[in-house]
Design a protein around this nucleic acid. Structure first.
Lengths: 337, 337
DNA sequence: CTCCTGGACTTAAAGGTTTTCGGAAACGTA
DNA sequence: TACGTTTCCGAAAACCTTTAAGTCCAGGAG
């Protein structure tokens, strides 16, 4: 807690010039003699002057601030997206106003009003799942970009992971390893993520001319379900040689149960997970081959496109961002290539 | 994207009054006839008028915005603190400007300047570990509160989890269950968290007049280390009947290795973890008894005290926040009380 | 009738910065 | 000297809101 903050007026007085000149000197504009500029800068440094962003924003209409509205606080997925966005903004002198609606529409409206009142230049809406969510863009005087969870309105700008493509890539990896009897355990079918990943599996198997081993098993996104599904699957389809799991939690559960039943991973059964949630994927034994959705990168991209939209160069539509297959021991053991 | 934003001037014109009257009507002040007030409110609604927070802040000197400076982005601990703080602020019409310094002092200075320039009313600094960190409060014209990681300056306001007390409580729980040969596996000794938790263990054992089983084993905060330490410990101190682990990751590794070596948890060896990181603590078998640091609550408390400090009622010092022991099957199996 | 009171409304200033425009000084040229 | 040009600097408006102070008028008291 120190003294009152210095204004440009104080700087001008100390430097013995008018505020107009001080402003020009500080902002590096022409029409100021080098010596004068130096005097002003010295005065500003001495007073540790910080221009008042409020006054500046009031005048220019630009606050260099964006809102980040997340619908689900605790979301494992929202956080990396948020960090990526924060990263992109931080690099460009932008600041991020964080709002958490906790999945409550009323609260979301409240935050929206607060952000508008603070005159943010743009808005990123981070979803909690890849299921489309209601658009907030109607009648908003600022551009909006949706990340992870797309808007229901196709005219909005949305960035989502390419779950279908990633699943196809994961299954393609299993096929390339020579696996032919591939099963699928995933999350609840009311999640678009689960449906998309199954669709990717279907496409990959179809183009290889192979059937799926057994039916898709849907359950919670939990390790417990992975174990349970493993027991059912090993009973009903004992001859499987690979499993594609809809999440790392499920995969971790599967690996554990399979090992207890004497099946070796990856020798007998290769396993691929999804999410690359490191606490699970690197700590299971063997470590999990898994899909990384590059969420931080997705968040960064969304932020960059928000920049563009603020500059009037919007890119409407749902953009599918590529994912990445992280290959670990659960599909190719160390020493075997 | 809609039309230009309405100002109070537009509202006043539409209602046929002066801007002063419009302002008074909108802010619910006296000196306005009921009929006039209604006309103004109707006009404001029609134009969907949102008062410009910049202009308001410029005048009042209060932005109703606080900065949240986190030193470590990816931190598992920073996030809940952040969410708790956001929660407390959200309830009170405050907004949060999020900045992530990524452990870089330069970047931290940069963000600090940006926040100051935006005239935030206060600042929360969230640490990445419980080790004290350099103070940023010197010469700052606004109050600062430190959460999770305290400031090195005892005159600052800091909120940290009571690691010593929580560890003593955890060990007390083991003692109450009749365990007498308690070992300790924890993280690197250069972490204050590791030293504090060991200290809590020491206090609890001392007051029970019992020695520690073997020496404290220090290693990384990882599951792998938990497994490795388990092997060493079961070899050197085969008669232990309980282990207090410095993290859930270590505990999960210990439980796994112990089971593979034929030790039953909790029957032969009771295990207590730390952090209550749910993906681990509820998914291990048996589920882990563990210490929950109540980080969200800690964040909320920090935010509330920042409010108080903004109002001039600061509470200097390092405040130790109580933790909570979450009892699960790794110390008391189902059906046994 | 005058004076006062209080209600309802308006005027104007303030807050800090940027920017436009005009003025003044310095200098070169005729 | 007169005039045009360049260079540097200052006055003032603009952004939007709040609030202190002021105006005007009706009605009541003396």
């Amino acid at each position: 807690m120190a003294t009152k903050r210095a204004t440009i007026n104080d700087v001008a007085s100390l430097a013995g010039v008018s505020i107009a000149t001080a402003s020009k000197a500080l902002n590096g504009r022409q029409d100021v003699r080098a010596a004068t500029r130096e005097r002003v800068l010295a005065a500003a440094a001495q007073l540790s002057f910080q221009p008042n962003a409020l006054a500046r924003g009031l005048l220019s209409g630009q606050t260099r601030t964006v809102g980040l509205l997340t619908s689900d606080s605790v979301g494992r997925f929202g956080i990396p997206v948020l960090l990526g966005a924060e990263d992109a903004f931080g690099a460009g002198e932008m600041a991020v106003l964080l709002c958490d609606a906790r999945g409550d529409a009323i609260r979301e409206q409240h935050h929206l009003r607060a952000l508008l009142s603070r005159r943010v230049d743009g808005l990123i809406v981070v979803g909690e799942s890849t299921d489309p969510r209601p658009s907030v863009s109607a009648d908003l005087p600022i551009p909006v970009v949706y990340a992870y969870g797309p808007s229901e309105d196709p005219e909005d700008v949305s960035f989502v992971p390419d779950d279908v493509g990633a699943a196809a890539m994961a299954v393609g990896h299993l096929l390339a390893l020579g696996r032919r009897r591939i099963a699928h355990i995933t999350g609840p079918a009311h999640y678009k993520a689960a449906r998309d990943r199954e669709e990717g599996l279907r496409l990959a198997l179809e183009s290889a001319g192979l059937p799926q081993a057994g039916r898709t098993l849907s359950g919670p996104w939990s390790q417990r379900w992975g174990r349970h599904a493993a027991e059912m699957l090993l009973m009903s389809e004992p001859e499987i040689d690979a499993v594609f799991c809809g999440s790392d939690q499920i995969a971790a559960g599967f690996v554990e149960a399979a090992r207890e039943r004497g099946r070796r991973v990856p020798d007998d059964i290769a396993v691929v997970g999804y999410d690359n949630w490191e606490v699970l994927s690197t700590e299971t034994r063997p470590a999990l081959t898994t899909v990384d959705m590059n969420l931080e990168s997705l968040g960064r991209t969304a932020a960059q496109h928000l920049f563009a939209a603020i500059d009037g160069r919007a890119t409407p539509g749902v953009h599918k961002m590529p994912c990445q297959l992280v290959i670990r021991d659960s599909t190719s053991p160390p020493g075997v290539s």
